[in-house]
Every structure is written in structure tokens, then in C-alpha cells.
Design a protein around this nucleic acid. Structure first.
Lengths: 350, 350
DNA sequence: CCGGTTTGAGTAAAGGTTTACTCAAATTTA
DNA sequence: TAAATTTGAGTAAACCTTTACTCAAACCGG
């Protein structure tokens, strides 16, 4: 019972043709209840598992999907990727996961491998999508970042993202309502819709409350990591010594900024208030406690998988909805707590 | 030039048989320089890429490997997985990455999918390896954790791990030499060789320096995450108020412990010194700065991939070395700094 | 210049499925 | 009950490679 049998073996043992076995397995064509029972029994006995490769060859596509992600070392992406892999696995789709490190050379290479393997679908997480020349031939879902389409090959493609502008708006509003008046922002790569929209939300909130957004109070980090956040804050505070509020376009940036804040002797939330974006686990740690904007990574995944599976099954080649904008949620923590008096004693210094 | 052509098309366009095309592609059998040039030209022109699925069917194995990992959300695993995927990709092996969440049901399911897809090799990272009944049929490399072998199917399997005992030993020694005398440990799942060996190294260091290890100063965390570290420290300090040194079997535990430490008003390194394990990025942040034991995730990966590829090519069915124990490195940071006087001013409070 | 070896390249089978065609048997309809 | 339809199941082609067999041509030693 090594599970190494073929459909032919099953057909012989159950006294039917291979075609019938195939039909039973795929619940396709016609067969009698009785035949089905017999075939099923043999399949079970032999611990038979259809050869996914042969099936893939025949159907010109393999039951598997590719996930393109910049870097699973970033907890936010890891979270999304983890959820995707779990959800896909439940639908019997194994996932090829490719880290591109934002390098389009690597992305192309991985894409070629995935194509050669004839994956049935693709999921881009915050991808650069370098494949603009050729029409993308398989159903694809984009998460977090809008691909730079030429609208011609717009079909077969779906976008799922958070309401980033609303997120930026909520973040800045939270800072405003907790008393900040000099609110800076550490952004990242505003050529991407994701971060551009967060930035726009931030500006909108300021404007609405009568503050003219000042580009000197905004700095664009080189990378999306704590080290960049650290250095960005140092530059920012130098130019704006009166900063009393800071919104970071991602939590990793906020964490880096937080280190810099403490290093120069400022305190959160007493002398400066802080809001991040993503709600990665570190921000929730007691003693860190950074207010942040939660994106629903679980929803990203469940929607993406649901849509993608239906596209791959061609039940529904053109999904009704091509764009999903998910609500975000402000997670209020100590970093934006109003400091009324000195009575707050249970608050650990960072 | 859609890249959708087949070997047959190439053969027609270059005026040779498909067999010859195949030979050229695989640098197999014989063909003249001239033929090769012609075929290559057409391949390039047509942007032809061999169908990996058809090849997989013919060869009864697909050029791809499966990676089984508990949870890429843990930065250490993410690091290892990232490196593996990158190294494999360079060798033209796409990687299926499966998170098991330490659930053997999920592991089995993923394993079945991978088998159906006829992956050429498997990499287990710290896996439970529930597949003990059946003989593992493909080349497999274990990273970090020794599988529970029945020695019979010992062949075709390789283990790569850090010198965990030495790591534990270095950690405890560092605490001792920085002046601690009441050194506790937060461990995790000592039924696993990984954590058991770290624990043994810790005990060894204590013994050698004349301290009788006290089981009351050791606590086993429920999970390997900050929350567990946090609670474990709280319990530990309650039983051992005089604790002045702490070794955690992983950095995520140490980070949780650190929060608890601050919460009860102790200071690192003044009142208690701390050592973690793994060297994840958070520990290096200015202001966190936890001394830790670095494992070479890059070496894990490069060795694993090198061995696995050679096994998969059957160049070398039985690798000469079946077990690799990599050296670890103590990364000394502020959390174990000797506090001589008050002169250390550049040290940020956490 | 002849028997033997090497070289280059074609033919066809095989690998495990799926599925379009069949067709006989069973069932329904008139 | 004859005709028409439905049902159940088999045959064989196709999916794209790889590779064991061939075999003709070229080359080589004596």
C-alpha cells in the first residue's frame, strides 16, 4: 500500500475501465452508484492518489498556485502569506512561494519557473509586477498593491487592498484628537498606491482640521524596515524639533522610529505620540504598545482564495467584482494615550 | 512569441527531430555543434520554455521541492525559509512552502499534496515528521530538528543543525562571566533535540562553574512566542526573586520576558542580564539590544540546498556526510553588559 | 579500400490522466 | 411492442517530454 499505484491498477482491481475510474474520481460523466462504490473501495484499499503531474499535463494546468511576495521576513507579508497558504491548502492547492526582494530580475525568473510548471493561478502580494509586456495568461489576484496596468489586459485580474487612505486619515485624526499639533510622517515609496494613499489620508486629515500640510514634515524612508525608520526619524526631528506626533506608513518603520525617539530622550506618549500601520505583533507587546492601523490579513486571504479558486475553476471566469477595498481599523494603544496627569503608573517605560 | 510553443514546433522550425531538440536542451546524447546552434536560435526566437509538467511526467518527478515549516510568521523560520527559497530558485527549483503550525494533520495533508505533485526533494524545518509509517520516498533534508527515526529508513536522509548544546553553554557562560549567580532559563519543548540540547548546555556551564543546576529556575514555555515568554518570566521571577540572569531558548521568548522584566521594574542589564537564541532582527535594535546566540541561517540553507540538489540529481545518492552540526556564535549586546560604574552614558534605556 | 568504430540524428514508446466518441443495455414513450 | 431516449461504461487519442533503439554517414586503421 505505498500509494504508488496508477489509475490502471485501480481499474483492473475493480473490473472497470480506466475511464470509469477517472469519472468516479472527478465526479464527472456517468457511472452507477454500484460501480462508484466498488471503485472507491479499491482506491481506499490501495491508498491511491491520482498523479497530479499527469493530470496537469492533460489539462494543461497544474493544481497549484504561485505566490509572489517581496520578503516573508517582514511580519506583515509573512502573515498574509501564511494565511494564503493555509486557505489554499484547505482547497487542495499547494502554493509555490517566491520572495522577490523587490528585484524584478528575480521576479521574472520565478515567474518563468511558475509558468513552466503551469500553475493554475497567481497571487501577487505588493508585487512590482514586471510582467507588463506579455499578457498574463493565468488568473491573478493582486493583494495590497495595484499593478501598473495597461488597461487592455485588464481582464482576469483582481485587486484586493485595504482602504489605505482611510487608514492614513484615521491615523492622523487619532494624533490630532490626542492633542498633537505638529504631526510628521515617515512614508515609503509613494509611487505605490498603497503608501501614496496613506500619505493622502494623512494630508486630508490635517487639512480638514485647518492645518496646512508641510512637506518638510514628511520623509520617505529608503526601505520598509526598522533601520530605515530609525534614520528617517533622526532626520525628521532634526528639521522639526517641535514634532509632537508621528505617523509611520508601516509598523516596521514605527518600531525603528521608536528606538530613535528614546535614544534622543523623548518619551512616548508624553513628548511625542506615534501611530504605525499593519498591526504586526511587536506593536502589541506590553511596553511597546504602538497605536496602529490594522489591516485584515485574514480577509485579504479569504477573499483572494475564494475569488482565485472560482476563477481557476472557470466557474466564473470574470468575477463580478474586480476590486475589493477592505475597511481598516484603528487599534488604540499607549503610544497615543492622552497624558492627563501623572496618575498613569501602570504604564511601563519602553 | 508567447512562449507557449512546444518542442515539436521547435523541431519543425529548426528542421530536426524532436529528439534532437530535447538532446540539445538537456545537453544529453549527441548532436553537432551546428545543429545545436540552429536549435538554440529557434528556441530563443520563439522564447520557448520546456514544459516542466510533461518533463515531470516522463521522469516521474518534478523539478521542485517542498519545504515544511512550522510557521513563517516566526522570524527565525522566515529567515531560513527565505534563504532556502532563494538558494533553490538559483538552482531552478521552485519551492512549495507549507506551514504546518505544528499540526500533524496539516503536515500529512501537505505531504500528500507534495507527493502527488512528485516533488524531487523535501526540506523539513524543525518538523514533527509525522510520516514515520511509510518510508520517505524522496531525498529529504532535515534542518534544526532531528526526526524521530526508526533507523531502518535512515538512508536518503540528512540532518543539519546548530551546535545547540554549545549555544546553551555559551549563553550561560556569558551570563556567568558578566557576574550573574542566579541564572534561570526559559526553555521550550525539551522533547525536541533542539531545545533539549540548549538546556543541557546551560546546565553544563552552571555545573562546570560549581553551581548545582536547580530545576526550579527552569521553566518550559507553552509556545515559542513573546506572550509565552512574558508569562514564563512572571512565573519564574515569582519563584526566584533573586534571579539576576536569564537564558531564553529563543529570542521570541526573550522579547516577551524583556517586557515582563520592565513591567515589574527591573532593568536590563543593571538588575538582570538576558541572553536569547537565534539572533532575530528585533534583538539587534538599538534600545532592545539583547545578547543572543546566532545561528547561521545562511549556512543552513546553502548546505541544505547543495546536499539536496546533489541527492536529487542522483549524482550522489548517499551523501558522504549525513549529519552537519554548525557552529554558533555569541552576539554580545547590552543585555549582558557589565555595569561597572555609572559612566556608561551612551546606553539608551530600553 | 574494406571492416570496424564513432557520430549525428530520427522513430516510436512510455509516462498517467482526461475526455470525445462509441455503443450496448436499460428505460421510457407512444 | 417498436422507436426513441437515457444510462453506463469502454476505446483510444492527446497532453509534451525523454530515451532506448535504430541506422546511415563519416571516419579510421591497416
Amino acid at each position: 500500500m505505498k500509494g504508488k499505484s496508477s489509475i490502471k491498477e485501480i481499474s483492473e482491481l475493480s473490473g472497470v475501465s480506466i475511464a470509469t475510474v477517472s469519472r468516479v474520481i472527478n465526479q464527472n460523466g456517468r457511472f452507477s452508484k454500484d460501480t462508484e462504490k466498488r471503485v472507491r473501495k479499491v482506491i481506499k484499499e490501495m491508498n491511491y492518489q491520482p498523479n497530479a503531474v499527469a493530470r496537469g499535463l492533460r489539462k494543461s494546468k497544474v493544481q497549484a498556485v504561485g505566490i509572489i511576495v517581496p520578503d516573508i521576513t517582514n511580519e506583515f507579508f509573512a502573515q498574509v502569506t501564511l494565511n494564503l497558504q493555509n486557505d489554499l491548502s484547505k482547497m487542495n492547492y499547494p502554493a509555490f512561494i517566491c520572495n522577490t526582494r523587490e528585484d524584478s530580475e528575480i521576479e521574472r525568473k520565478n515567474l518563468d519557473m511558475l509558468k513552466a510548471l503551469q500553475v493554475s493561478g497567481l497571487i501577487y502580494i505588493s508585487g512590482a509586477f514586471s510582467d507588463d509586456k506579455e499578457t498574463l495568461s493565468v488568473p491573478t489576484v493582486f493583494i495590497d498593491r495595484k499593478p501598473p496596468f495597461n488597461s487592455s489586459n485588464n481582464h482576469n485580474i483582481v485587486l484586493i487592498e485595504s482602504d489605505n487612505e482611510q487608514g492614513g486619515y484615521l491615523a492622523a485624526t487619532e494624533l490630532l484628537s490626542s492633542g498633537c499639533s505638529n504631526i510628521g510622517m515617515i512614508t515609503f515609496n509613494r509611487s505605490r498606491s498603497t503608501h501614496y494613499n496613506r500619505y493622502m489620508g494623512y494630508k486630508k486629515a490635517l487639512s480638514e482640521s485647518g492645518i496646512v500640510p508641510d512637506e518638510n514634515m514628511v520623509i520617505e524612508a529608503e526601505n520598509s524596515d526598522p533601520v530605515s525608520g530609525y534614520h528617517s526619524f533622526k532626520s525628521l526631528i532634526e528639521k522639526n524639533p517641535h514634532l509632537d506626533g508621528l505617523f509611520c506608513s508601516s509598523d516596521v518603520l514605527a518600531i525603528g522610529a521608536l528606538q530613535a525617539i528614546h535614544e534622543i530622550g523623548m518619551k512616548v506618549p508624553e513628548s511625542i505620540k506615534l501611530v504605525g500601520f499593519d498591526d504586526i505583533s511587536t506593536t502589541a507587546l506590553p511596553g511597546i504598545s504602538i497605536t496602529t492601523i490594522r489591516q485584515s490579513t485574514a480577509s485579504f486571504s479569504s477573499i483572494a482564495v475564494k475569488i482565485l479558486v472560482s476563477m481557476m475553476n472557470e466557474v466564473n471566469d470574470e468575477p463580478e467584482n474586480k476590486q475589493f477595498v477592505l475597511p481598516v481599523e484603528l487599534i488604540r494603544r499607549k503610544s497615543t494615550q492622552m497624558v492627563l496627569t501623572r496618575e498613569i503608573t501602570d504604564e511601563a517605560p519602553l
